[in-house]
Design a protein around this nucleic acid. Structure first.
Length: 807
RNA sequence: GGGCGCAUAGCUCAGUUGGUAGAGCAUCUGCCUUACAAGCAGGCGGUCAUAGGUUCGAGUCCUAUUGCGCCCACCA
């Protein structure tokens, strides 16, 4: 028997342990059921799990449960992204030590230990939220399996000519001292100054004014540009400009990339202050002057400023220019600067050997792949398309860092030939091993290992391959790929989704998944991201779970529109809490009356009993329609709506029949029992994906024994299609309407709902009367009416004659 | 500058083939009703951002405008 009150915390823990022990959610490789595979996002192990994670992950979780109960063999792994720069920065911050301050091996060991500790915490939290992942299929991006997969991916792309090693321009973070990819850049508004500088034209001695925000690049100035249509300045074209302070002579060139009307209309081109500089440098084959070094300092060849940090050099050069009269004026301005998303530091452009994956050339292929995937919600596809169309750089995958998947690569010490590891030997660490054979080009036997590690996305972009055991030649690979669904939040469409598509297209010429389910973000306020500094400990996932229960938090997480950001408002948890309480109480009522029920009996059902099942059948159909469109919020909405109808109307209607067989007869009671049994069981199943704990509690209390399943979560939704009856649905609405009118009458007259009515006169059309007469017993008990009369009328209405109050 | 989303009750949000505006919270009135007072019944509260258009009918479709947000580009 269910207790009087539901103790969520205790109950939830109990069933979580049971599910683990009984391996309820394990993926069955030998099953004949159709497979539904999910490419679960591995959360980055670089801090804690916030409510935004729970929000997003719960949506996919509910979907996994829905598919499992729809008869699919669900492959739902779980992973952790625990390598690369985010992890390094996290560990550096936690211990207050920089990676370069200790031996590489020591640092890597520290990273590994720290991440494992956090992964355990993450896992516990997700389990406590009722996640039905198959915890036997967990993966970590630093594991041997992931490294092997990632290296195999690299080698495959290398062989296919899609990976290249080149000394070319890279986006460089002087704070993290590594190259980064375009996708890792954010824009930030930073204050700056527009400095108007005096240049001289060598041939005529004329003075020209050039405005720049980065005067420290003067020494690396390689040309000056004007717009070809700028009549004011076209006479300068072909002449030579003299750079102040440094007396460097550079050509003046016309190019329509110059923006008319900005500054003086004359621009300097340095290597490299911004992206336009690169374009001009390439287009006009200008010389290369490397001004910024790896650590963000001015190069040694720049007299007077060498070794200074770029920001310091900027200050000093402005002073120097001013002192010598070259600075005409300076305006303060705020402009958008490209910064590294991990550290917020402004990016530099430098030339250095890096490993790249060739993506720009194949944009169209990636766009085509995007077309083949179903995006839920559909408009999120636009973000993908928008990003792919604008990708301007090949994907730089090498990072001059320490903790990550190593490149399976050595270089011949003699001739520089690139030696790639043998696939059979993966994973390899070139730092501690050597190639098996001499250099194929020169026969050299000495090698230099590649010391860089791969970008963390280079590994997380092969999660379908890691999960399916591609690198292990696992039979699972063909079974579960392409995966059925990829869930993630919209911020990583441009990174995780895009890169995963790139890899899949290059490796298999196929899409990685059939469907993408995109979630929104949880915001702290309007347009305000949840950040660590703002996060309120009251609204941490574990706090919310303890206060409201995991089922309630899950309800909150799915109850919105797919893909939409939501503002965290604690009031919204009350909605779910209320529903849970109601579900428990209603179940308690139904089960109380089912203790002597024999489910094998098939009684002829009374009209209102048929009605509730017909209505539930319709609800189930609607539910499934929404779910197939990944609209899990709308799915539960329609179930919830039905459930309140069930409580407010059906239970009230059937109540008296269940309590008093001596008055209404055993057949009337049995009919009510049958309908109640089926209805509650179906309701529990429909709620089960959302509220896995309370539904299991109720199922185990009564239904498990009758139905014979080990858990409600491995049953399938009840098929009630034989009760489908649209005419009955209409007819029954009329009965509900009578009950509502009676309730309103009593409420308006300040009467208790159980106040007895001597005669209830129902005025309506002949058509409605017919049906109403067939359920007259139910009307009497629900309204507490001794007599019910019918009067034929064009308009619906009721008359009430109260019973005399007898003391 | 390009792309996308949002605008509905005091608050937070639903409303998906166009058909009489919904929920929770808040507020007011009443009710101990053999599941539930952490409850139940009922009330108050909305020219569905604005202006046009399509339609017998528009919160829903189209066009324009305004405000807010996100992504991308720009960063001399």
């Amino acid at each position: 028997m269910l207790p009087k009150k539901y103790n969520a915390l205790e109950t939830e823990k109990k069933w979580q342990e049971y599910w683990q022990k009984e391996n309820i959610y394990g993926f069955d490789e030998n099953s004949n059921k159709k497979i539904y595979s999910i490419d679960t996002p591995p959360p980055t192990v670089s801090g804690k799990i916030h409510i935004g994670h729970i929000f997003s992950y719960s949506q996919a979780e509910v979907y996994a449960r829905y598919k499992r109960m729809s008869g699919f063999n669900v492959f739902y792994p779980f992973g952790f992204d625990d390598n690369g720069l985010p992890t390094e920065r996290f560990v550096e911050k936690k211990y207050g030590k920089k990676a370069e301050s200790m031996p590489r091996e020591e640092f890597n060991k520290l990273c590994l230990e720290t991440t494992h500790e956090y992964e355990e915490m993450f896992k516990k939290l997700f389990i406590s939220m009722g996640f039905s992942a198959d915890w036997n299929h967990t993966y970590s991006s630093i594991s041997d399996k992931a490294q092997k997969t990632s290296q195999k991916s690299f080698i495959d792309l290398y062989k296919k000519g899609k990976v290249y090693y080149s000394e070319s321009l890279a986006l460089w973070c002087t704070e993290c001292k590594t190259a980064v990819a375009q996708a890792e850049i954010e824009t930030k508004e930073l204050p700056s100054r527009f400095n108007h500088l005096r240049f001289k034209v060598k041939e005529t001695g004329e003075e020209i004014v050039i405005a720049t925000t980065r005067p420290e690049f003067l020494a690396a100035c390689v040309a000056v540009f004007v717009h070809p249509d700028d009549e004011k300045n076209t006479h300068l074209v072909g002449k030579t400009a003299v750079v102040p302070l440094f007396d460097i002579e550079v050509p003046i060139i016309a190019d329509d990339k110059v923006e008319l009307g900005k500054g003086s209309g004359i621009v300097m081109c340095c290597t490299f202050g911004d992206v336009t500089d690169i374009e001009w440098w390439k287009k006009y084959k200008l010389p290369l002057k490397k001004l910024v070094s790896d650590d963000g300092r001015v190069a040694d060849w720049v007299e007077g400023y060498k070794g200074m940090k770029v920001e310091d050099a900027r200050k000093k050069i402005i002073e120097d220019l001013d002192a010598k009269g070259y600075l005409i004026k300076a305006e303060d301005l705020v402009h958008n600067v490209a910064v590294h998303e991990r550290c917020g530091h402004p990016m530099e452009l430098i030339v250095k050997r890096q490993w790249f994956i060739d993506i720009v050339k194949d944009r169209q292929k990636f766009l085509d792949a995007g077309d083949k995937i179903n995006w839920y919600p559909a408009f999120m596809k636009e973000r993908y398309v928008n990003w792919v169309q604008n990708v301007g750089w090949d994907w730089c995958i090498s990072r001059q860092r320490y903790y990550g998947v190593p490149f399976p690569v050595w270089y011949c010490k003699d001739c520089g030939e690139i030696i790639v590891a043998d696939e059979d030997n993966l994973p390899v660490n070139p730092l501690s091993t050597k190639p098996e054979h001499a250099c194929p080009k020169c026969g050299g036997k000495e090698f230099l290992p590649e010391t860089d590690v791969m970008d963390t996305w280079a590994t997380s972009s092969v999660t379908p391959e890691i999960n399916s055991g591609w690198a292990l030649n696992d039979s699972l690979f063909n079974k579960i790929t392409p995966m059925t669904m990829r869930p993630n939040a919209h911020d990583i469409i441009r990174t995780w989704d895009f890169y995963t598509i790139v890899k899949s297209i290059y490796h298999f010429n196929n899409v990685p998944w059939e469907n993408v389910m995109i979630s929104g973000h949880v915001l702290a306020g309007k347009g305000e991201k949840i950040s660590k500094s703002k996060s309120n400990s009251n609204l941490e996932p574990d706090e919310l779970r303890d206060r409201y229960s995991a089922d309630v938090v899950r309800y909150w997480a799915v109850n919105g529109r797919l893909g939409n950001d939501i503002i965290l408002a604690e009031d919204e948890f009350k909605n779910g809490a209320k529903l849970i309480t109601k579900l428990f109480n209603a179940s308690k009522f139904v089960l109380m009356h089912l203790q002597d029920f024999d489910n094998s009996k098939e009684p002829e059902l009374l009209p209102m009993d048929k009605w509730i099942l017909a209505k539930l059948n319709k609800t189930t159909e609607e539910f499934k329609d929404y779910m197939e469109k990944y609209e899990i919020g709308l799915g539960i909405n329609c179930v919830e709506k039905f459930f309140w109808d069930f409580c407010d109307n059906y239970i009230e209607i059937v109540k008296d029949r269940l309590y008093k067989p001596e008055v209404h007869g055993d057949a009337a009671r049995l009919s009510g029992q049958k309908a109640s049994y089926l209805a509650l069981l179906s309701i529990l199943k429909l709620f089960a994906p959302y509220f896995p704990h309370i539904t299991e509690e109720i199922y185990q209390d009564y239904f498990a024994e009758k139905e014979g399943a080990k858990s409600i979560h491995i049953t399938e939704f009840t098929d009630l299609s034989k009760y489908s009856d649209d005419t009955l649905l209409d007819r029954a609405e009329f009965i509900k309407d009578i009950v509502a009118q009676v309730r309103k009458y009593k409420s308006e007259n300040n009467l208790s709902l159980k106040t007895e009515i001597e005669t209830l006169t129902i005025k309506t059309t002949i058509k409605e009367i017919e049906f109403a007469k067939s359920v007259i017993g139910d009307i009497k008990t629900t309204c507490s009416a001794r007599n019910v009369e019918f009067v034929e009328s064009a308009e619906n209405g009721i008359d009430i004659k109260l019973a005399e109050i007898t003391e």
